[in-house]
Amino acid sequence: MKKTFYFLLTKSIGSYINFLGVVSPNKATQMAHGYFSQPRKGKFTIDTLPKTLKEAQSETIQHNDDVIQTYIWKGNETVIFLIHGWESNSSRWKKMLPHLKKSGSTIVAIDGPAQGLSSGKELTIIKYAEYIDIVSKKYQPNYMISHSMGGMTSIYYQYKYQNPTIKKIVTLGAPSDFTIILKNFTSLLSLSNKVVKSLEKKYTEFLNTNLDLISSKEFASKIDTKGLIVHDVEDKIVLFEEGKKIAESWKDVQFIETKGLGHKLHDDELYRKIYVFLFNPHPVQ
């Protein structure tokens, strides 16, 4: 019943945007952009803060008009930075945290734009990377662990900012090609070719580059940081082939293929392998 309702809702939204594409193209493009870039889940308030995050030291960073929410589990001078994905927040690390704490490291998690307690209405890799850079300048992280869109953002961040303190990056279920993400979205809403072309033009102008170049595999090919890519063969949110694309272009990377963990990739044995990758100089087996 829920799937039927969701299907009808998305098609209704798409039909309305297509109608606007005929009578008011600019409004249609703006509306489509809003649905594409604005998360509809992942926010919470102080009163509904998950227990996991209540146990951390909470710190809010004000930067111009942005409010960036961070959570810190204090440890030694080694810093691990956690980057969540789309329609999520820092509580997604609940199951991994006990494993990371064994290292004695300081752990810093961030709520991305428009997620958790951070401000904003839109979540894009460019804006997210700006948040990451602001927090990184303060905490000087050594390792980054990221999930889904957070994985794409962490690779983009290192490509753009070339942070020398980042020694290793772990990505979990990260997408590669922006064009595939956009195609999946426009197909879901059954947007007309006219609206799709207008949306592609908007992003090409905004990003000032060919959309084919907005890709984790392209970003990864230009960084020297050690990487660990984890992807599940049964991931239905971000296909396994996306992880393989990134792995093939990353100069210094290890690849872990899992089965049965889906997109969330919660698993104690996997966490152990991630721990070994971060703190053991030998390759993960």
Rank of each mutant, 00 (worst) to 15 (best):
Lys137Glu: 14
Lys102Pro: 03
Phe178His: 01
Val238Glu: 00
Glu257Gln: 11
Gln30Thr: 14
Ile132Asp: 08
His63Ser: 14
Gln38Val: 06
Asp47Cys: 15
Ala109Leu: 07
Tyr159Ser: 03
Lys197Asn: 13
Leu182Asp: 08
Trp73Arg: 01
Lys74Phe: 06
Phe206Cys: 15
Tyr16Arg: 10
Phe44Gly: 03
Val108Glu: 06
Leu100Thr: 00
Lys127Leu: 08
Asn280Met: 13
Ser187Arg: 15
Val233Arg: 08
Ala129Asn: 05
Asp47Val: 12
Thr52Met: 00
Gly85Asn: 12
Gln254Asp: 01
Lys95Val: 06
Gly14Glu: 00
Lys160Pro: 03
Thr204Pro: 02
Leu97His: 02
Ser118Tyr: 07
Leu228Ala: 02
Thr209Tyr: 04
Gly75Ala: 04
Pro50Ala: 10
Glu218Ile: 12
Leu207Ser: 10
Asn163Glu: 07
Leu261Gln: 01
Glu55Asn: 13
Thr78Cys: 04
Gly112Phe: 03
Val233Ala: 11
Ile181Cys: 07
Phe240Tyr: 11
Leu213Trp: 13
Thr10Leu: 11
Val238Cys: 02
Trp86Leu: 06
Asn142Leu: 01
Gln285Ser: 12
Glu130Met: 12
Leu20Ile: 05
Met1His: 15
Arg272His: 10
Ser198Cys: 13
Ser90Val: 07
Ala32Lys: 04
Tyr271Ile: 02
Tyr139Arg: 10
Lys2Glu: 15
Ser12Trp: 12
Phe206Asn: 15
Val22Gly: 07
Val230Glu: 00
Gly120Gln: 07
Lys273Gly: 08
Asp235His: 04
Leu117Ala: 08
His266Cys: 14
Phe44Cys: 10
Val79Glu: 02
Asn208Ile: 07
Asn210Ser: 11
Thr124Gly: 10
Phe206Arg: 15
Leu123Gly: 12
Lys245Phe: 10
Ser154Lys: 03
Lys137Leu: 04
Tyr157Ser: 03
Val230Leu: 03
Ile110Gly: 03
Lys2Asp: 15
Asp47Tyr: 10
Leu8Ile: 14
Ile145Cys: 02
Asn76Leu: 05
Lys102Thr: 12
Pro281Lys: 13
Ala220His: 03
His84Pro: 06
Gln57Asn: 14
Thr165Pro: 00
Ala247Leu: 01
Ser119Thr: 05
Lys41Thr: 05
Asn89Gly: 06
Ile68Ser: 10
Gln254Cys: 04
Ile166Glu: 00
Thr4His: 12
Ala114Glu: 00
Lys11Cys: 09
Asn18Tyr: 14
His33Pro: 11
Phe81Pro: 00
Phe206Ala: 15
Ser119Cys: 09
Tyr157Thr: 02
Val67Tyr: 10
Leu228Ser: 05
Lys94Ser: 11
Ser103Gly: 08
Pro39Gln: 01
Glu77Lys: 07
Gln57Tyr: 09
Glu205Asn: 13
Glu59Thr: 08
Leu20Cys: 01
Met152Gln: 11
Arg272Phe: 14
Glu87Thr: 09
Asp235Phe: 11
Lys127Gln: 13
Gln30Leu: 15
Glu241Asn: 09
Gly42Pro: 08
Leu199His: 07
